[in-house]
Measured scan of single mutants.
Amino acid sequence: MLYRITVRNADGEKLEIVVEMSEDEVRALAEELRKAGYEVRVEPIPEGEEP
């Protein structure tokens, strides 16, 4: 499935990426980023919607 991941650092800089991963993989990635001090938001992209 496609997911949009938005990551912000302490300075407020934002990075937005689209990935194709399983829900478990995305959850693990988000958890690791949060542990590293980043603010993370994950949104699933519905099938048929443009990323």
Rank of each mutant, 00 (worst) to 15 (best):
Glu39Leu: 12
Ile45Leu: 12
Ser22Tyr: 09
Glu16Gly: 03
Ile5Arg: 00
Gly48Glu: 08
Glu43Cys: 10
Ala30Glu: 05
Glu39Gly: 05
Val40Phe: 04
Tyr3His: 03
Gly12Phe: 05
Glu20Tyr: 15
Glu16Met: 12
Leu33Gly: 01
Val18Asn: 04
Val42Trp: 13
Tyr38Glu: 01
Met21Glu: 01
Glu23Cys: 15
Gly37Leu: 02
Gly12Arg: 04
Arg8Met: 15
Val18Ile: 09
Lys35Gln: 09
Leu15Ala: 09
Glu23Arg: 05
Asp11Glu: 09
Arg34Ile: 04
Val40Trp: 01
Val18Ser: 04
Val42Lys: 00
Gly12Ala: 03
Ile17Tyr: 10
Val18Met: 08
Glu25Trp: 05
Pro51His: 08
Val18Tyr: 08
Ile5Ala: 00
Arg4His: 03
Glu47Pro: 12
Val42Asp: 00
Leu2Ile: 06
Gly12Gln: 04
Val42Asn: 00
Val18Trp: 08
Arg4Tyr: 05
Glu32Val: 15
Lys14Glu: 12
Glu13Ala: 14
Val19Trp: 03
Arg27Asp: 05
Glu49Lys: 09
Tyr3Arg: 02
Thr6Asp: 02
Arg34Gln: 06
Leu29Asn: 01
Leu2Phe: 14
Glu50Cys: 07
Glu50Ser: 11
Arg34Val: 07
Pro46Asp: 10
Ala28Ile: 09
Ile5Trp: 01
Glu13Val: 15
Thr6Trp: 15
Ala30Cys: 04
Tyr38Met: 04
Glu43Gln: 11
Leu2Cys: 09
Lys35Ile: 11
Val26Met: 07
Glu43Met: 08
Leu29Val: 07
Val40Leu: 02
Pro46Lys: 13
Pro44Asn: 09
Asp11Ile: 14
Arg4Val: 03
Tyr3Lys: 01
Leu2Tyr: 15
Ala28Asp: 07
Met21Asp: 01
Val40Cys: 02
Pro44His: 11
Ile45Trp: 12
Pro46Asn: 11
Glu32Ala: 12
Tyr3Phe: 12
Thr6Arg: 07
Lys14Arg: 11
Leu2Thr: 06
Gly37Ser: 02
Ala36Pro: 04
Glu50Ala: 14
Glu16Ser: 09
Asp24Gly: 09
Leu29Met: 09
Lys14Met: 10
Asn9His: 07
Glu31Arg: 12
Asp24Phe: 14
Glu31Gly: 10
Asn9Val: 07
Leu15His: 08
Val7Gly: 11
Asp11Gly: 12
Glu13Tyr: 15
Lys35Cys: 03
Arg4Thr: 02
Asn9Phe: 14
Asp24Leu: 15
Gly12Asp: 03
Pro44Asp: 04
Met1Gln: 06
Ile17Val: 05
Glu50Thr: 13
Arg4Ser: 02
Ala28Glu: 04
Glu32Phe: 15
Glu25Thr: 07
Arg4Gly: 01
Ile45Glu: 06
Gly12Val: 03
Pro46Met: 11
Glu47Gln: 12
Ala28His: 11
Asn9Thr: 07
Ala36Val: 10
Glu16Asn: 10
Leu2Gln: 07
Glu47His: 14
Glu31Leu: 15
Thr6Gly: 02
Gly12Thr: 03
Glu47Ile: 12
Glu31Trp: 15
Arg27His: 12
Pro46Gln: 12
Glu50Pro: 12
Glu20Ser: 13
Asn9Ala: 09
Thr6Glu: 05
Ser22Ile: 10
Val19Tyr: 03
Ala28Pro: 01
Arg27Val: 07
Pro46Glu: 09
Ala28Trp: 07
Glu32Arg: 15
Glu20Leu: 13
Ile17Pro: 00
Arg8Ser: 07
Ala10Tyr: 14
Glu13Met: 14
Ala10Asn: 14
Met21Lys: 04
Ala36Gly: 08
Arg34Asp: 02
Ala10Gln: 09
Ala30Pro: 00
Tyr3Ser: 00
Glu23Leu: 11
Thr6Phe: 15
Arg8Phe: 15
Ala28Phe: 11
Pro46Cys: 07
Leu33Lys: 01
Ala10Lys: 13
Glu16Asp: 07
Glu20Val: 13
Pro44Leu: 08
Pro44Glu: 08
Leu2Asn: 03
Glu31Gln: 14
Val19Asn: 01
Asp24Cys: 05
Val42Met: 04
Leu33Cys: 02
Arg8Lys: 12
Leu2His: 06
Glu32Trp: 15
Tyr3Gly: 00
Glu47Gly: 13
Val40Ala: 02
Ala36Gln: 10
Val18Lys: 07
Ile5Pro: 00
Val26Phe: 02
Glu25Lys: 07
Pro51Tyr: 01
Gly12Ser: 03
Val7Leu: 15
Ala36Asn: 11
Glu25Gly: 13
Lys35Tyr: 06
Ile45Ala: 04
Pro51Gly: 08
Ile17Met: 11
Arg27Gly: 09
Arg8Thr: 11
Glu50Val: 09
Ile45Thr: 05
Glu32Ser: 14
Pro44Ser: 08
Ile45Tyr: 10
Met1Leu: 13
Ala30Asn: 01
Val42Cys: 05
Met1Asp: 02
Val19Thr: 04
Val7Pro: 00
Val19Ile: 07
Ala36Ser: 10
Glu16Val: 06
Ala10Trp: 12
Asp24Lys: 05
Glu47Trp: 11
Val18Asp: 03
Glu39Met: 13
Leu33His: 02
Val7Glu: 00
Val42Tyr: 11
Lys14Pro: 09
Gly48Cys: 03
Gly37Trp: 15
Glu25Pro: 01
Leu15Val: 09
Asp11Gln: 13
Met1Gly: 06
Ile45Asp: 06
Asp11Thr: 12
Val26Thr: 03
Glu39Trp: 14
Leu33Met: 08
Glu20His: 10
Val19Met: 06
Asp24Pro: 12
Glu13Trp: 15
Glu25Asn: 13
Val7Tyr: 15
